[in-house]
Amino acid sequence: MEPLVDVDAAALRASQYWMEDGLVEILLGLLTSSQMAIYMVAGALPRGPLMDFVSTFGAQALCLAITLSIFGGFKKLKARITFPRTGYVALPKRSTKYRMSVFLIALAVGAVTVGLEVFRLSQTDWLSRMAVPAFAAVFAICLISGGLQYKQASMLWEGLLTLLFAAGLEGFTDLRGIKGLGALMIMAGISMAIFGAFRLRRFLKANPKPQETEA
């Protein structure tokens, strides 16, 4: 007789497990919104050769420092919050194809960052008009495809919200270019962090920390 074990579901379960406490969403949301906030502040600083240099490299350095501390903090939070409650699991080393995809995405993010700097300094008109809808579309596609792949409803909602934020910014505000983009990413990041916070709350309620653990 065939045993009732869904082997493919077990593989998907391990990936979902890493997202079920909401920490990924909180930290990614904070990362997105804080980086955009830094760029907006840098953009608002008075112009001048020295200030441009300081704001450009200062913003990059601050973004890098925040990214590194968020990734470092993620592992510590997982070890403190998740593993004692629901157990520890390490995902296997990813395939070359997967690592290449991540590298390409990182390259794209780097290109966008450089583009933002060029954009901030040049403020070209057509780029300015395209920034919010184009970035919203890319971000929403990433969220929706991730949500479908990992069967995470909240990611679908976050994708939809990003599109709504973009429509709202285009339709009801004069924010264009770097300001519009910054506002969009801050809103998208905060909404992602809020979704994550609700998920974390549910997770903590459903999984109280055991007094005595055989882990």
């Binding site: 077990a10 593989a11 998907l12 379960r13 391990a14 593993f83 629901t86 157990g87 520890y88 699991v89 390490a90 995902l91 296997p92 080393k93 653990t213 055989e214 882990a215």
Partner: peptide, 8 residues
Amino acid sequence: SVKEADFL
């Protein structure tokens, strides 16, 4: 599907 997992 994982590298390693704990008992819990």
